[in-house]
Nucleic acid binder design. Structure first.
Length: 270
DNA sequence: ATGACCTGACCATCAGGA
């Protein structure tokens, strides 16, 4: 008698929608953050530039919508948070040393299947003849060293406001940035050092002009597409293949009282 | 070459952003 054993392997695919957004003050952007949560229902929301040193205010704001939040905060400047579905199995891997007394970075680990989500507000670094520029480069190097270590253990998503214009066509008019910290060869070198850890830029092959993420309040006219691409998702190749959808949510730059940055979104089937 | 515009600090005006 022939015996047949049937082994059924059930692979549970789940969808994760991740949004990253430099809101330029959470207090000022409450209505738009509420809007994006209701409309997009992200599983994970990475925020930069909270500009408030009140941890409870931040987590209470997001708990109204049944999310959990981890934050690094500081008075007036900087500040980052990662808000996520309560059902997700997570750990806080945030590295206080990387912040160098400025709240610019936090890390959420998705336990299954082991994805480290690193949320960043990179230093601006202007003017380039000041110690702010050397601080920027130092900070970027330390981020690189830490991600290099995390990469041995986890799949990686690096996101946030990188404050780097990697290539000339990532700006509508690069000439205006010749003396700007965002486009200096040293800043770009640090950016590509990070990317060369085998991290892929999700929007790299999109039309650059329609992938700008920042539009200056003063100098530029949003409607003329005069912006720069400085907000990113860098992901490991395994995750790049799982991306089902990616978008720059330009509509949030058009709304009343907007941030100068657009939210960026990816959806993964893991 | 400089400032514009927006935010938080705090109440008149400046620091910081990019």
């Amino acid at each position: 008698m022939l015996k047949i054993h049937v082994v059924v392997v059930v692979h549970l695919v789940f969808k994760v929608k991740i949004i990253s957004w430099n809101v330029n003050s959470l207090r000022a952007r409450e209505p738009l953050v509420q809007e994006i949560i209701k409309k997009e229902k992200p599983n994970i929301l990475c925020i930069q530039e909270l500009k408030i040193d009140d941890h409870d205010y931040v987590s209470d704001f997001f708990s109204q919508f049944s999310y959990q939040t981890i934050t690094q905060t500081q008075k007036s400047y900087n500040g980052v948070s990662i808000t996520y579905d309560q059902i997700l199995d997570t750990s806080d891997l945030s590295l206080p040393t990387l912040n160098k007394d400025q709240a610019r970075n936090n890390i959420l680990l998705l336990e299954k299947p082991g994805i480290a989500i690193i949320n960043n507000y990179f230093p601006n670094g202007n003017p380039i003849d000041s110690d702010k520029f050397s601080f920027k480069l130092e900070w970027m190097n330390e981020l690189y060293e830490n991600i290099k270590k995390l990469k041995d253990k986890y799949e990686i998503i690096v996101t946030g406001d990188f404050n780097v214009i990697p290539e000339d066509n990532d700006a509508h008019d690069i000439k205006g940035y010749k003396k700007d910290a965002l486009a200096q060869p040293e800043s770009r070198k640090e950016f590509f050092k990070l990317r060369n850890l085998d991290l892929l830029d999700v929007f790299e092959n999109e039309n650059k002009k329609s992938s700008y993420t920042f539009f200056d309040y003063k100098t530029y006219k949003f409607g003329k597409e005069e912006g720069i691409r400085i907000d990113f998702f860098l992901v490991t190749p395994f995750l790049k293949n799982k991306i089902m959808n990616k978008k720059v949510l330009k509509e949030y730059r058009e709304m009343e009282r907007p941030s100068d940055h657009c939210p960026i979104l990816i959806e993964l089937n893991i």
